[in-house]
């Protein structure tokens, strides 16, 4: 029953890690990730975990009680094999984006690099339905799957010291949205006025969560507060 493509190990005193990255390319990254969300959801029903954190084709489980580590190391692989990745999908969140000008200072450079019109960059960026694979880097920051491969753009050689909250950027083969002002090296193509942080809702303090879908809608004007 052991599958040599899966790796399970302990991290520190109370965490265990399931690494599924070697299942790619036999399975797509999105398919692997879908099964990880399903496993995460199953595990969240047990009250033994402090935190259950998906990464890129891996899952880390933080236990309250270190005496349970051995047990979970022995069963997590079996639980993985019971997942199908079916019927796991979150809601679709629409994000209005004002592309270009001072809101997307790198839009022209991205278009030139790929020998496309800026309108074609916008069309290709706003066409797909993206999937939130996992969150990290800063609170509410989504790692999105689904960027058109024609738009793959390297990061800036010198990162900006401050990027305004709501900026939409491309970094390598990823696209994402900055939830708060932060330094960063992604190429900025637009900005949204939707807040990705909802601290007034302590149970759901971020707009997005793993498994959610995202659609970017180009708009011609947006009101920005502050």
């Amino acid at each position: 029953m052991t599958n040599t493509n899966l790796t399970v190990y302990r991290l520190g005193e109370n965490a265990i890690v399931l690494d599924c990255s070697k299942l790619f390319p036999e399975f797509s990254k999105l398919n692997i990730q879908t099964r990880i969300w399903e496993l995460a959801k199953q595990c969240s029903k047990s009250l033994e975990f402090q935190d259950i954190v998906p990464g890129m084709n891996n899952l880390t489980l933080f236990l309250h009680d270190t005496t349970q580590v051995t047990f979970w190391l022995s069963v997590i692989e079996k639980r993985w094999h019971s997942t199908t990745g079916l019927n796991v999908s979150g809601p679709t969140i629409e994000i209005p984006v004002l592309y270009g000008r001072e809101y997307g200072p790198d839009l022209d450079a991205v278009a030139r690099r790929h020998q496309l019109d800026t309108t074609e960059v916008i069309r290709r960026h706003s066409a797909p339905e993206y999937t939130v694979l996992f969150l990290g880097f800063q609170p509410g920051f989504p790692y999105l799957d689904g960027l058109d491969s024609r738009l793959t753009t390297p990061r800036l050689s010198t990162p900006r010291l401050s990027i305004p909250a709501g900026s939409v950027g491309i970094g390598g083969s990823q696209t994402g949205i900055y939830p708060a002002d932060a330094p960063g090296g992604w190429q900025l193509i637009g900005r949204t006025n939707i807040s990705l942080l909802t601290p007034d809702l302590p149970a759901t303090p971020t707009l997005l969560a793993p498994g959610y879908k995202v659609r970017f809608t180009p708009v011609t004007s947006l009101e920005f507060t502050s």
């Binding site: 259950i52 998906p54 969150l135 990290g136 920051f141 971020t206």
Partner: peptide
Amino acid sequence: LSGYRHLGIP
């Protein structure tokens, strides 16, 4: 705070 690290909250 625990329980929110999957949302990127440290």
